[in-house]
Amino acid sequence: MTSAQTTLHVTPADTAEALGSGDLPVLGTPRLIALAEQATVAAAAGLLADGQTTVGTRVRFDHLYPTRVGGTVTAAAELTHRDDRLLRFTVAAHDGDGRLVGEGEITRVIVDAKRFMAKL
């Protein structure tokens, strides 16, 4: 299986308060999902030919536990399904104490970067 992980040291800029997704100074759900997506991008990198990239098409994610500013979160992604250009990953994020912070599934699709951007 193709897998990767990414780590975040939570800063005030990563909080729900700063992102506008809440009013508490804890890791915001949008930032946690972005961390999980970063892990899927890294996991998919070895599957791409020159000129290809991936784009996210679906996110199903549960944010389960708060993380304070100064805490660390590591998101791991594992490719669990591939159908031609479609890539489906399971993702899980744990804090520095090993607690499950969030988990879910992210779907990405392999695209030709130039053709994709030409659609704009």
Rank of each mutant, 00 (worst) to 15 (best):
V41W: 09
V41E: 14
V41H: 10
A42W: 04
A42P: 00
A43P: 01
A43Y: 01
A43E: 04
A43S: 02
A44G: 05
A44F: 00
A44V: 04
A44C: 03
A45H: 07
A45K: 10
A45Y: 02
A45N: 08
A45L: 06
G46W: 03
G46Y: 07
G46K: 10
G46S: 14
G46R: 08
L47D: 06
L47F: 04
L47A: 12
L47I: 09
L47K: 09
L47M: 13
L47N: 08
L47G: 07
L48E: 15
L48G: 14
L48K: 13
L48F: 08
A49F: 01
A49T: 13
A49I: 12
A49E: 15
D50S: 13
Q52F: 01
Q52S: 05
Q52P: 00
Q52N: 08
Q52A: 06
Q52D: 09
Q52T: 11
T53Y: 02
T53L: 10
T53F: 02
T54Q: 05
T54D: 09
T54C: 06
T54F: 04
T54P: 00
T54V: 09
V55I: 15
V55T: 15
V55P: 08
V55F: 11
V55L: 14
G56M: 12
G56F: 09
T57Y: 04
T57P: 06
T57S: 12
T57F: 03
T57A: 11
T57V: 10
R58G: 13
R58N: 15
R58I: 10
R58L: 12
V59G: 01
V59T: 13
V59S: 03
V59Q: 04
V59W: 02
V59R: 00
R60N: 15
R60A: 14
F61P: 06
F61V: 07
F61T: 07
F61R: 10
F61A: 11
F61Q: 12
D62W: 01
D62M: 02
D62H: 09
D62P: 00
H63D: 09
H63M: 10
H63Y: 07
H63P: 02
H63L: 11
H63I: 10
L64C: 06
L64K: 12
L64H: 03
L64P: 00
L64I: 05
L64E: 13
Y65K: 15
Y65A: 14
Y65W: 11
Y65V: 05
P66M: 06
P66K: 10
P66C: 09
P66Q: 12
T67E: 11
T67R: 06
T67G: 06
R68L: 10
R68E: 15
R68N: 12
V69C: 04
V69R: 06
V69D: 08
V69H: 03
V69L: 07
V69W: 01
G70K: 11
G70T: 13
G70N: 12
G70W: 06
G70D: 12
G71K: 03
G71V: 07
G71A: 09
G71P: 00
T72D: 07
T72A: 12
T72E: 14
V73I: 04
V73T: 09
V73Q: 08
V73S: 05
V73L: 06
T74A: 03
T74I: 05
T74Y: 00
T74K: 01
T74V: 02
T74Q: 01
T74C: 02
A75H: 01
A75L: 03
A75N: 03
A75W: 01
A75T: 04
A76Q: 08
A76R: 11
A76Y: 00
A76E: 05
A77C: 00
A77D: 02
A77L: 00
A77P: 00
